[in-house]
């Protein structure tokens, strides 16, 4: 089985994020870069499937050179090889351009399964997996809390508001995972050493056969007019419970007409 896992480097999940003043894109220099947290679950799920069914795992990423750290992390977790699309012209790409670039890189490599985390913690759109499925013309199995592969078919539990749907498709398929699905492993020392020798194919947009006019900030189909920090909230009333905290709280809710 050939498995791809698409990963993204994002600003540290626990750091405050900012937009850049010059072009209104995410300031990626302002915080440490880490692998998007949900993508770690995607890597883990791929590794578990590989343990059960064999095959090869390729990490696919697009992003600046420093995203190579995220590629190394995925390789040190146990993935076999990686493709890194890196090119200045990609800067500022929106979800449409990102899905175009990823789908182009993935197309023709005969992957049976293409994994994603269900959202990135920076943009939080949750649309790229569905867009890649649309572009590749393969089944979309997204928001999976469980993935089972049996021969040439794949079954997932898709998380919904009311519980979950069981969704089945024939391979190939795009699968995105939620964090409930597993517990990602930490890279072992052995894994970290082994990752240094694993093949990473670095592609420019020209290498990948991408049309540059469809990439980057200038090609985005949405434009930021302006942005501003949310004004800080006025300090509220904080009381210490002296046995009547609940009553005081009820009083506040009554004044606010909630009760």
């Amino acid at each position: 089985m050939k498995i791809a896992v698409c990963v993204k480097q994002v600003p540290d999940t626990w750091a405050e994020k900012k937009l850049r003043g010059d072009d209104s894109t995410l300031d990626r220099e302002a915080a440490d870069g880490v692998m998007n947290e949900l993508d770690e679950y995607a890597v883990e799920e791929a590794l578990k499937l590989q343990e059960a069914h064999g095959g090869e795992i390729t990490i696919v990423t697009m992003g600046p050179e420093r995203a190579g750290e995220t590629v190394r992390k995925a390789l040190s977790m146990g993935a076999d090889a990686a493709v890194h699309l890196v090119d200045d012209t990609l800067h500022g790409s929106d979800a449409l351009a990102t899905s175009y670039a990823l789908a182009t890189v993935l197309d023709g490599r005969d992957f049976d399964l293409i994994f994603f985390g269900s959202e990135s913690t920076d943009a939080r759109m949750s649309v790229v997996p569905a867009m890649v499925a649309e572009r590749l013309g393969v089944a979309q199995l997204t928001f999976a809390q469980k993935v089972d592969v049996d021969g040439t078919s794949v079954t997932i539990q898709r998380v919904t508001d009311y519980g979950f749907e069981t969704v089945v498709a024939s391979l190939p398929a795009v699968v995105s995972v939620v964090e409930k699905i597993n517990e990602p492993r930490y890279p072992s020392f052995k894994g970290i050493m082994a990752a240094k020798k694993k093949p990473v194919e670095t592609l420019s947009t020209a290498d990948a056969g991408l049309d540059g006019s469809r990439l980057g900030l200038a090609a985005a189909w949405t434009v930021v007019e302006d942005f501003a920090a949310r004004p800080p909230k006025a300090t509220g009333t904080i009381v210490t419970d002296d046995g009547d905290g609940g009553v005081k709280l009820a009083e506040f809710l009554a004044v606010q007409k909630f009760i």
């Binding site: 009381v239 419970d241 905290g245 609940g246 709280l249």
Partner: peptide, 15 residues
């Protein structure tokens, strides 16, 4: 907007 510093197992049932 309103905060109570206290044990939720006392404050919440009282509320």
């Amino acid at each position: 907007d309103f905060g109570v510093v206290g044990d939720l197992f006392k404050v919440v049932p009282q509320l």
